[in-house]
Design a protein around this nucleic acid. Structure first.
Lengths: 230, 230
DNA sequence: AGTACAATTCTTGTATATTAGTTTAAGTGA
DNA sequence: TCACTTAAACTAATATACAAGAATTGTACT
C-alpha cells in the first residue's frame, strides 16, 4: 500500500512523519537534513529522499540554500479536505450498508468498545487512530481502500487540526463516539436517509472549535487573509 | 502550486513525466537512472529525486536493486478515480452556477471554440488539454484549485486511459464537445437538475470503450482478476 | 549609536564513488 | 541434455565530497 520502500528510507520517512504529526517538530520550526541525519544516525541521502515525500504531503517546505521548515497548518486546505471527504463518504456509507458482513460487524463493535475505553483513559492519539480505523473499515468493505489512502494523503492539514483539537478539548470525545454508534446502527438498519444525514453532520463537526484550538496554539497556523481581521 | 522546485529536478520531472504520459516510454518498459541521466544529460541525483515524485503518482514502480519500470494502467484504480471525481464534480458545478462571472464566461466560450477547432484538426493531446482546462475553470471559479490538483494527482491512471482512447477513437470527440456545451448552457441557466444529470453522464463516459482501447493496446494494461476470463 | 559592507557559516543542490542486492548467463558435473 | 553452482554484470541504495546561494554575524565607518 505504501510506496515508501526498503528499510532506511522508510525508517527515515516514518520517524520524521511521526514527529511532525505528533508535534514533536512544531509548525514553523526549522530543521535541517544534517540535523536529522545525525539525530537518526543515517546518511543524508535517505533523509533527503524521505523529505521529498513528506514535502509532497505539504508537511514541510524546503527553501533552497536556506532551510527546511515544518509547515504551519493551513485551515483553508483543511476546509477543502473536508469538502472532499463530505462528497465521498456518504456514498461510501450508503454502499457499505448493502454489503455488511458478520466479520466487519464484529470488527466495528470491537472498535466502538475500544473507543469508549480510550475516551475514558484520555489518550488522544489512540483515540484518533481508532476514529480513523472506524471510518476506514467501511471503505475496506466497499473495496475502496485506494480511495481511503488518497484521502489520507490529501487530508494532512485537516488531520493535524483534528489531532490538536483532541489534545485540547477532551469533552468532545463523548460526542464523537456517540455519533459513531448512531452511524453504525443506521448502517445495520439500512436506514439510508439517516445514514446520509448523520455522516454529513459528523464530518462537518471535524472543523468545529476552531476558535479554541487557534487560541491554544496560535502560531501553529498559517494566517489566511479572511480570518482574524481584528 | 507545483511543489517541484528548482531547475534541474523540475526539468527532469517534467520531461520524464511528459514522456510517460505521451507514451514515449511505454507501460512495462524498463528504464534506468543511468539511461535517463545520459539521455537528459544530467547527473543521476536530480533524476532520482524526480523519479521519487513520479513513483508517488504511480506512473513508475521501482524495484530495489533491480530496475525502474513504467507501470501498466490499472483500470481498477481508474474506476476509483472516476468514482471520486463523480462524487466531487457535481457539487463543484452546482456551486459554480451561482458564482459565474463575465470573465469566466468569456474564457469558457473561447475554450469551447478551441475544442471544436482542435477536434477537426485531429490533435488528441491538444484536445485532452482543452478538455482538462474546461473542467478546471469551474474549480477555479469556486476557489477549489487545490481540490483540482488533488484530483489530478490521484487520477493518473484514468487520465492515461483517456489519452489513449482519444488516440484510438476520434469520433468520440464530437460527443464530448457537445456535452461540454450543454453543460455550459445549463450552468448559465442555473438549471440545477440538468447540471447534475449532465455532469454525471459526462464523467461516467470517461471509462467507456474499454474494449476498443484494450484491444488496441493490450499490454499497456495491468491484468485485473475480474476482467477477461476468457 | 546606527548603518553599510564584508567575510564567515550554514543550508540545500548536485555529482561521484562505494556498497549491496538481483539478475543473468556461463560453466561444471552428472 | 539437464540440474545445479558460481561468477560476472547490472541495478538501485547509500555515503561522501564539492558547489552555490542565503543568512548571519562581526567589523569598520559615518
Amino acid at each position: 500500500m505504501d510506496n515508501t520502500r526498503d528499510n532506511m528510507r522508510k525508517d527515515a520517512y516514518d520517524q520524521i512523519k511521526y514527529r511532525i504529526i505528533h508535534f514533536e517538530y512544531i509548525p514553523g520550526q526549522k530543521i535541517s537534513e544534517k540535523l536529522i541525519s545525525t539525530e537518526l544516525n543515517l546518511g543524508r541521502t535517505p533523509i533527503r529522499e524521505a523529505l521529498i515525500r513528506i514535502e509532497r504531503e505539504e508537511l514541510i517546505e524546503v527553501i533552497p540554500q536556506s532551510g527546511t521548515y515544518i509547515t504551519r497548518i493551513d485551515l483553508q486546505e483543511a476546509e477543502d479536505g473536508r469538502f472532499v471527504r463530505e462528497s465521498i463518504e456518504p456514498r461510501i456509507m450508503l454502499q457499505a450498508a448493502t454489503m455488511m458482513t458478520p466479520e466487519t460487524k464484529a470488527k466495528i463493535q470491537d472498535n466502538l468498545k475500544e473507543q469508549e475505553k480510550t475516551a475514558k483513559l484520555n489518550q488522544p492519539d489512540s483515540f484518533f487512530d481508532l476514529d480513523q480505523d472506524f471510518h476506514h473499515l467501511f471503505y475496506s468493505l466497499d473495496n475502496k481502500d485506494t480511495v481511503w489512502s488518497w484521502l489520507q494523503m490529501n487530508n494532512t492539514q485537516l488531520n493535524r487540526f483534528r489531532r490538536l483539537r483532541l489534545k485540547e478539548t477532551d469533552l468532545n470525545w463523548q460526542t464523537l463516539t456517540k455519533q459513531h454508534r448512531l452511524i453504525y446502527d443506521a448502517v445495520i438498519n439500512k436506514d439510508l436517509d439517516t445514514i446520509d444525514y448523520l455522516i454529513k453532520e459528523h464530518l462537518h463537526l471535524m472543523l468545529e472549535e476552531k476558535g479554541t484550538v487557534l487560541n491554544a496554539y496560535p502560531d501553529y497556523f498559517k494566517v489566511n487573509d479572511d480570518d482574524q481581521v481584528s
